[in-house]
């Protein structure tokens, strides 16, 4: 969690300003007390009016305080859940790193054996053509599956990477444009347009550029895979409250409400088996958190999704 402690006591954990408490804790009891004291000095008809005013003030304040407490409790519970979730992600990161290391070694042996077997079967005599073709097909398939495992373990290692980001000043628009150009050709091929809506005069950001590139590329490729021909991916940048945000908005199928909670979990994917590792968004989430920012998603099913990276300036 990267919520910074604000020096202002009235600021909430996300930086939202709450109305002050003192009208309810000081002013309302003070007014009620003053009304009670005033009843001692005033005629009975005025007493009743003062008692009603004092009562109304007390009831109003009590209701306001109760509502604020309920809201506070709700927010606390939500923060607890988010903290638990990020601890869970960190624990999975540790575990995955260990598993990835252990699996890479047997995968390396399988890879070498495969390469050798392929070479030997390439000039094999005495076997029927069909058998030989089957054997070669099997070897090809094993190689394909090893490569699939390789992608998973390498991404897992990336996920678990605990490297401190190397910060450098860079024009945000440039970082985004570099990645947009990378996918633009593929997007054109699929009939998907990439639109830009960059805020003018954005200051340079101080961030780990290769890591940020990785995040933007991941969001862009996800958007591309989700958007049907004729759709548009829009890249937006905005600046507000000492933060800068980068949004990748697509006009694709959107995210089903039941999946919204799971999209940042490692291995969660809605793609067919073998088509996606389910690690892209969890890796991106981890990277953005390490850069001191946050990654959030909003979506209406059938109307596309927007992923927003918010970074401190």
């Amino acid at each position: 969690m990267n919520a910074k402690n604000s020096t202002k006591p009235e600021a909430g954990p996300e930086g939202f300003a709450f109305p002050p408490l003192w009208p309810h804790t000081v002013l309302a009891p003070g007014l009620a007390g003053a009304a009670v004291l005033a009843t001692l000095l005033t005629p009975p008809a005025v007493d009743v009016a003062l008692a009603l005013v004092a009562g109304a003030i007390c009831i109003g304040s009590a209701l306001t305080l109760a509502r604020r407490i309920r809201r506070g409790e709700g927010e606390l519970r939500e923060m607890d859940l988010r903290l638990l979730h990020s601890q869970k992600l960190a624990a999975i990161g540790e575990l995955s790193s260990g598993i990835a290391h252990e699996i890479n070694n047997p995968l390396a042996i399988i890879t070498q054996e495969l390469d050798l077997a392929r070479e030997i079967t390439a000039d094999c005599q005495g076997l029927s053509d069909e058998d030989l073709s089957d054997a070669r097909d099997s070897l090809r398939e094993i190689a394909k599956q090893v490569d699939r495992c390789r992608q998973i373990t390498h991404k897992l290692l990336n996920f678990a990477r605990k490297m401190e980001p190397v910060l450098q000043e860079e024009a945000l628009e440039q970082v985004i444009e570099d990645m947009a150009l990378l996918v633009e050709k593929e997007a054109q091929g699929r009939g998907v347009a990439i639109a830009r809506d960059y805020a003018p005069d954005l200051p340079h950001v101080r961030t780990d550029v290769p890591l940020l590139r990785q995040v933007i590329l991941n969001l862009l490729t996800n958007a591309l895979h989700a958007t049907p021909p004729g759709g548009t991916i829009t890249l937006l940048t905005r600046r507000a409250d000492g933060q800068v945000s980068i949004a990748v908005r697509d006009t694709g199928c959107g995210i089903a409400p039941e999946n919204m909670e799971k999209i940042f979990d490692p291995f969660f994917t809605t793609k067919e088996p073998g088509k996606g590792t389910g690690l892209g968004l969890s890796v991106s989430h981890g990277i953005v958190a390490r850069l001191g920012g946050s990654l959030a998603a909003t979506s209406r099913p059938g109307q596309g999704a927007t992923f927003t990276v918010t970074l401190p300036l």
Binding site: N104, I110, T111, Q112, D115, V146, R150, L157
Partner: peptide, 8 residues
């Protein structure tokens, strides 16, 4: 280089 690495 990271294992597994194709021989090529």
């Amino acid at each position: 280089l990271l294992k597994p690495c194709p021989t090529e």
